[in-house]
């Protein structure tokens, strides 16, 4: 890990969370890489380098959370479409409930810190 990376705690957090965001996007429809990246990129703070999504997709495929199918496209070479699997849905459900609890605890602590800070001033 690079020193700069360690300084930003969100980098590590992002890395852990983003694969579930990909799974969440795929629960609605099958998407190809470029499209997936576009939709993730909609929220700027989530993806810093779009290219890093591809190793992530390949990892999701290896663990069996997504499957891929090649499809012809009207414009350009064939595209690889990603679809979520049953195991992927299961993992996403587990993460979602964990995340809710985690988010609430962090939010609770952070807002309390804010209150104390406000009192000190």
């Amino acid at each position: 890990m690079e020193p700069g990376e360690a300084q930003n705690p969100l980098t590590q957090l992002r890395r852990g969370v983003i694969e579930y965001c990909v799974l969440a996007l795929l629960t609605e429809e099958e998407l190809y890489g470029f499209d997936l990246v576009k939709r993730l990129g909609g929220s700027q703070s989530l993806v810093t380098s779009e290219g890093t999504i591809y190793p992530l997709l390949s990892r999701l495929r290896r663990v069996g959370w997504v499957t891929t199918t090649w499809r012809e496209s009207e414009s350009g070479p064939p595209r690889r479409y990603y679809a979520i699997t049953r195991a992927g849905r299961h993992a996403l459900a587990g993460f979602t409930s964990e995340w809710m609890r985690f988010r609430d605890s962090v939010d609770g602590l952070l807002t309390r810190g804010e209150d104390h800070g406000a009192q000190g001033v």
Binding site: D35, Y54, L57, S73, R79, R80
Partner: peptide, 15 residues
């Protein structure tokens, strides 16, 4: 896998 993924992304962006 990684190279073909990135290559595909660039092709799709151009298309």
């Amino acid at each position: 896998d990684l190279l073909s993924g990135i290559r595909e992304h660039i092709d799709a962006a151009i298309a």
